[in-house]
Design a binder for these strands. Structure first.
Lengths: 137, 137
DNA sequence: CAGAATCCAAGGGGATACTG
DNA sequence: CAGTATCCCCTTGGATTCTG
């Protein structure tokens, strides 16, 4: 028999599962919209096209690295478009693509659920914390 | 005048924005369901109550640490319930709470969008990669 | 069986400086 | 203005070991 430890089998299963997860479109979408900045950028663009500096100001807490990285990945996925105007100081405008626009209703639903139920979650959280830990810092 | 560097102002803005983000229910919900294992556990429980070991087997690639951690946070948020049966080997059953059940339709919508549009995303991705990088490994 | 505790490696993400 | 490149910290998460 193949002398195979439990951890080896575990590792193998993990790999197969990772592949399965990577292939799952739901997982991919979740990974995309769950990014800290993605939804903020998308929301910012929902009001209309924005320049890079506008986005930078509107989202405030974001670093150039993250903003650029987020915009690149969104552009790559066809959710936002990037238009360069080669004026003297370069000008770049970002906008939602039609595909990106179809994603917004989903975010709206999530927003609704959150607004309707997040207080229940908060209550459950408080109850849970108070039940065992007594004193929560 | 207050001698304040740009980075100081940036840092301040970032802090304020972090607070804003932390307070936003949408952000909280996204942070929750975007977790790699949360949706898997939730989906596994959608078919009915499951024991700890059952979940461990069904989700396969998960480590005890992550499974336990995920279940704890979900229990804390009132999305899953935990029932301990003090038999000789302890038995613990997890199940979706009513609140947790109301979350499933959202995941279904996400799943639908993903299944309908993920090929467009994939196409956009391929086009983007082929346009600039020429050779993609 | 169900879980807590510890150790440790990899990667995400911020700050900074430089470029076209 | 709109990025790119670099350094570096600190969190995330897997493997392992020990308990009730």
């Amino acid at each position: 028999m193949t002398t195979r430890t439990a951890s080896e089998r575990r590792a193998e299963a993990a790999q197969r599962y990772d592949a399965y997860l990577a292939a799952c479109p739901t997982r991919q979408l979740l990974d995309r919209i769950s990014d800290k900045w993605v939804t903020l950028v998308l929301s910012a663009l929902a009001g209309g096209p924005q320049r890079y500096s506008d986005l930078s100001r509107r989202i405030a807490g974001v670093s150039q690295k993250m903003l650029t990285q987020t915009l690149r990945s969104l552009e790559r996925d066809g959710l936002v478009s990037r238009a360069v105007t080669p004026s003297v100081p370069v000008r770049v405008d970002y906008a939602l693509t039609p595909l990106g626009s179809t994603l917004m209703p989903l975010l709206a639903h999530i927003k609704e659920w959150a607004e309707h139920h997040m207080d229940e979650v908060a209550a459950a959280r408080t109850g849970y914390d108070g039940a065992s830990g007594s004193a929560a810092p």
